[in-house]
Amino acid sequence: MILAQFFICFLATLSFAILFAAPKSELFFCGLTGAIGWIVYLIFLQFYDSIPLANLTATFSLTVICRLIASLRKHPVTVYLISGIFPLVPGAGIYDTSYYFIMNDMGQCSHYGMQTIKVAGAIVLGIIFGFALPQIWFNALGQLLHAARSGN
């Protein structure tokens, strides 16, 4: 089940990376980051039922992985982060909020509206925490992995 989700999210992120004309050599990694972010989100939800917290954890992992891949592949982080963030962006929240607004169900509307804002805030914090880790770590790790690969 989780494998299917992984694969489909990989495909979804990859398609969006193509829409933003990401370089062909990086498409695989774009898909990978998105899929990993989504899986972290799903796994977190299994253990603790809080959508904003799950988003925070997932975005944080996503950012760290994107930075790692970026230093490994020597490309801007933007390439991976922009593609990878899409599964986590609260599209469903925007829909639900406007749906209940139309239905004149203000209780549900404000519930989903607040949740969307919370999720957006969680994404903000996740990215900020991810970028707060010093770049030197990633450079060192990237070099280490690079050396290990060329050593083989």
Binding site: L19, I82, I85, P90, I94, I127
Partner: peptide, 12 residues
């Protein structure tokens, strides 16, 4: 609506 959702703007 995912292609329209402002993921890029938010991230940037």
């Amino acid at each position: 609506i995912m292609p329209l959702v402002p993921g890029i703007a938010l991230t940037t």
